[in-house]
């Protein structure tokens, strides 16, 4: 099976998508520069300026144009350079893209795909993780691929999807390698993946935090404890069932989220777990999140803000004595 990076897997997915005449890509630097993260490198030459469009720095216009084109029967893929800039397009995304189907009584669909980049190591205004925010909006779908396999599979599902999709790609994961089969497959929304099986504790994560969870699982293995690591893969729809099934087996669970703790996505999942699996818990449901501070610019300080395997281990010790 061929091995590729997440960057390559996404490029592959986009190339496939562009075989459909309705599909076009627009965004800042997606054309002549080849994409801020080089995902669309060579696309302009390959597909031409009609289908690979550089835009001005105007996120609201970009998403708005995407919504309009989607309403008009096209299949636009809008790249927002980082999720931090998505804030400028929130009105188009939340008030228009997500609402149009409902407000038109199903007459109008908005099958726009918005690719954006979350996380990173670029300081307070560039190292944020808002994908959990979008997950709270009815009408949106939010994909969070942490492997090349899932990135390609979720791109394929997104292109088929008839409602707006936000794909949050992690800045630090583009170079992550993994096997991707030649034969066609898709990764459906709302289907979490068990990355590692275990019976003693469940660790739930998405994007970069999956790797943290896997490291924690290694450390627990040294203590003779088996952690089950669940990669959510999409935040909306959310596959609570897989998490609950695992918790019923392990009786212990910690949710890891790179975003801030207060009002964050981890709290949502923690709440769902205790509501559904209370009688199966052997202790409080844990969460380890990014610290409630703006991300520091210093690389070392920033690393201390993001959840680390050490912090997760500490939480597991406090809650469960493992």
């Amino acid at each position: 099976m061929p091995e590729m990076t997440i960057r390559e897997a996404i490029s592959k997915g986009l190339r496939e998508a562009l075989t459909d005449d309705r599909v076009f890509i627009m965004g800042e630097d997606v054309g002549s520069y080849g994409g801020a993260y080089a995902v669309t490198k060579g696309f302009l030459e390959e597909f031409g300026p009609q289908r690979i469009m550089d835009t001005p720095i105007a996120e609201s216009v970009m998403v708005g144009a995407g919504v309009g084109a989607a309403m008009g029967g096209m299949k636009p893929i809008v790249e927002i350079m980082t999720i931090n800039f998505m804030l400028l397009a929130l009105d188009q995304l939340v008030n228009h893209a997500a609402k149009m189907r409902y407000m038109s009584n199903g007459q109008i669909e908005v099958p726009v795909v918005i690719r954006t980049v979350t996380g990173g190591q670029l300081g307070a205004t560039h190292s944020q993780n808002f994908e959990g925010w979008f997950a709270s909006v009815p009408g949106l779908k939010v994909a969070v691929p942490s492997t090349p396999y899932d990135a390609l599979g979720l791109i394929r599902s997104s292109i088929k999807e008839r409602d707006p999709v936000v794909i949050a790609e992690h800045a630090m994961l583009y170079g992550a390698k993994g096997e991707v089969p030649d034969e066609h497959y898709e990764v459906p929304f709302g289907q979490a993946k068990i990355r590692r099986e275990g019976k003693d504790i469940t660790l739930v994560a998405h994007l970069r935090m999956v790797n943290v969870a896997l490291k924690v699982a290694d450390q627990l293995a040294e203590k003779g404890k088996e952690a089950e690591v669940i990669d959510l893969r999409s935040l909306r729809p959310l596959d609570v069932d897989t998490v609950i099934k695992s918790v019923k087996k392990t009786n212990r669970v910690v949710v890891i989220d790179e975003n801030w703790q207060t009002g964050g996505f981890a709290g949502e999942l923690v709440s769902s777990i205790q509501e559904t699996a209370f009688d199966h818990l052997d202790g409080p449901v844990g969460r380890v999140c990014g610290l409630d501070v703006p991300a520091p610019y210093s690389r070392k300080l920033e690393a201390s803000v993001v959840p680390t395997p050490e912090r997760v281990m500490e939480t597991i010790g406090q809650l469960y004595g493992l």
């Binding site: 009786n251 199966h280 818990l281 052997d282």
Partner: peptide, 9 residues
């Protein structure tokens, strides 16, 4: 007595 829910069950 402190008992976890699953232990009680």
């Amino acid at each position: 007595i402190k008992v976890s829910p699953v232990a009680r069950k």
